[in-house]
Design a protein around this nucleic acid. Sequence first.
DNA 1: GGTGTACCTCCAGT
DNA 2: AACTGGAGGTACA
Length: 356
Amino acid sequence: MKRPRPPSPPSISAAAKPPLSPPPTPILKQKLQRTGAPKWLPLKLTQTELTLPLTFPTGQTFRWKQTGPVQYSGSIGPHLVSLRQRAGDDDTISYCLHRSASPKAAELALLDFLNAEISLAELWSDFEIKDPGFGEVAKHLRGARVLRQDPLECLIQFLCSSNNNIARITKMVDFVSSLGLYLGEVEGFEFHQFPSLERLSRVSEDELRKAGFGYRAKYITGTVSALQSKPGGGDEWLLSLRKLDLQDAIAALCTLPGVGPKVAACIALFSLDQHSAIPVDTHVWQIATRYLVPDLAGAKLTLKLCSRVAEAFVSKYGEYAGWAQTLLFIAELPAQKALLQSSQSIQLVKSSEKKK
DNA sequence: GGTGTACCTCCAGT
DNA sequence: AACTGGAGGTACA
C-alpha cells in the first residue's frame, strides 16, 4: 500500500517523535473524502490519562498513522477513527469517526481499545510510592498508556517484528493490512480493517516472501495454520488466553511458530490483559541493569536473565508492572531522552548509582 | 540449561 | 562504490 515517505527511521529512535513534531508529508495528496464536515467529539479521557504521542508511536502498534500535528488515525475492528488533542492548554482529547455505521459501537470499541477503564493516575501514584524514581520520570511523560489491541492483529504485527527494524516492520504490517476490507483514507493514508484469519489463510508463504517478509513468511503461514486448527477457532483460542495466568498465556503463545518469549510478552501485554508481562529487549535490559538489578550489569542477555529482569520488574511494581515498564521504556527512547536530558534521566542514573 | 549460528531484507555507517 | 553490522528474535543443533 502507499504510504508517506518514511522519515528514514534508522531504528526505534524514530518510534517516538517529539510530541509536537510536524505530520509526515503524504506522497499522494488524494481527494479528501469530505462527504460532510468531520464531526469531532470529546473523549472521556484527559491528557493525564492519554497522551497520543506517548502512546501510539512507541512500538505498541504499527498500524496507526500520524495524520496531523497531534493526530493519529487507525482502525479498530470495522471502525476508522482519528484521535487528536490540541497543542494548547486544552486538556481534552477528541475523536472523529469516518463513515461509521454505528457511532455508539465505535465509541465503545475505542474506549475498550484505549483500556479506558484503567486509571493511569492511580497506577502511577502507586508506582511512585513503590519507587520515587519512577515519579521523577513519570511527571514528564504523562499519559503514556498501554493499548488493548485485538489479539490476532497484535500477534501478526509482532511476528513481523523479530530481528527487524521499525521501517520494515511497518511496511510488512501495511502489506498484511491491505488484505483486509478497505475502510477509507485520512490525509493520504489508506486504512483497512485487519484481515480475518480466514483471509490470512489464503496467503501463501511464497507471496509473503515476494512481499519482503523473508524468513518471517513461514512464521505467518505456520501460525495462521496452527490457529485455524484450534478447536472453536483461532480467534476464540486467542481470546481465551485473556483468562489465563501470565505464565500459561506465554507458554501457549510460544507454541506458535515464530513466537518466542519476547514476542509472546508483547502480545500478552498489548492485547491479552496480561498487565504484568514484561517484554525484555535490549532497551529494557539497559534500564534494568542500570536501575533495577545493577548486579547484572555487563552480563549477556540470556533467556534466564530475561526472566530475572521480568521478575525484578514485577517485584518492584506489582500486578501492573508492564505498564511501569512501558513508561520507563519510552523514557529510554532517544527522542524522549533528549527532552528529559537536563532533569530526570539524570535522576535515574543517580539513584541507580546510589544503590551500588 | 547455557551457547552458538543461520535466517530475509533493508539501510546507515564506513 | 562496495561492504559490513544491526535491527524490539526465533529455531535448532
